[in-house]
């Protein structure tokens, strides 16, 4: 690995100062499971690596307050997957966190890192999209909340401003019963990068939210407010037509070696239909409490 300087700010103020002076020569280090791979292969060559794990405001914590669940940016996947509150209210996020790499990766990879890396295949992104998460960003000018659907731009790029850090991710607690699920496609059963990753949420009012990644430059949310997908009585053709429309924006890359665009599109339909079915079953079985 090429050499670089290492900075471990103990406060937000120190971090901002480092980021300000280092500018684009800085890379933030949280879990490191993506960053260190890229430092080694040389695709990133920062002069300063800024380890954000000792900043108190970013610490790994999951807390319920004011109608929302707040997950600290450096909370690791294993903790999210195992957390009772996440599993009760946001099961698709727990399911997604549980398939990010193998256990050694999940013990290091953070939620903040996963979204800031902005990989189109990030497994937590679709779940965060269906749950309407907000990203709490903080910079020297103060903090702001970014709706997750406005967060991703393309691989490696988000709407974070220069010098801003992700402090936490907030999930509004559901106000009505919901059923949700995360599904994905991989090349083997053991841990793998997703060739399609998808989350679905159906609420008691009949609105279906589907979010999907790895089929375009960024993860996308699509909402069916017609009630057709959530309607047990609707026939397969009607549901299929709605799904087609929701998935119309998918634009899988032809250059990927992991799966062809045709296969990704086909699997999006298969996973979409299966996910709606599972989410409805979960809703019918009591679902997540409102």
């Amino acid at each position: 690995m090429r050499s670089f300087a290492y900075s471990r700010p103990a406060t937000l103020a120190q971090a901002f100062k480092t980021l300000e002076s280092g500018g684009s020569d800085c890379r933030l280090l949280a879990g490191g499971t993506d960053l260190i791979i890229r430092l080694r292969d040389g695709s990133l060559q920062p002069t300063i690596v800024v380890d954000v794990k000792r900043i108190p405001e970013l610490r790994p914590v999951i807390r319920e307050e004011a109608g929302r669940l707040t997950i600290g940016a450096t909370t690791v996947m294993s903790e999210i997957a195992a957390d009772e509150r996440v599993r009760r209210h946001f099961v698709a996020l727990a399911e997604a966190a549980a398939v990010v790499g193998a256990v050694q990766i999940r013990n290091r990879a953070t939620l903040g890192g996963n979204i800031c890396n902005a990989s189109p295949a990030a497994d937590t992104a679709p779940a965060l999209l269906v749950y309407g998460a907000q990203v709490v960003a903080i910079g020297s000018a103060g903090s702001r909340r970014i709706p997750i659907r406005d967060f991703f731009v393309r691989s490696g790029e988000t709407t974070l401003r220069r010098g801003e850090l992700v402090m936490a991710i907030e999930l509004p607690l559901p106000t009505q019963r919901t059923g949700s699920v995360h599904l994905r496609r991989t090349r083997r059963r053991g841990h793998d990068l997703a060739s399609v990753t998808l989350a679905c949420l159906v609420d008691a009012a009949g609105v279906t939210r589907l979010a999907f990644g790895s089929v375009g430059p960024r993860p996308v949310l699509a909402v069916d407010s017609s009630g057709v997908l959530a309607d047990d009585a609707a026939d397969d053709d009607a549901k299929g037509a709605v799904l087609e429309e929701l998935f119309a924006t998918a634009s899988p890359s032809a250059g990927s070696m992991r799966a062809s665009p045709e296969y990704r599109r086909a699997m999006l339909r298969v996973l979409g239909r299966r996910a709606v079915g599972i989410a409805l079953d979960r809703l019918a079985g009591g679902g997540a409490p409102g």
Binding site: Y6, L29, G32, D51, Q104
Partner: peptide, 19 residues
């Protein structure tokens, strides 16, 4: 390269020594 750090298994190739 798996080792246990503070009770959790990690790939020690994906963690800096300074961490």
């Amino acid at each position: 390269c798996t080792v246990i750090v503070d009770g959790s298994t990690v790939d020690s190739c994906l963690m800096l020594g300074v961490e």
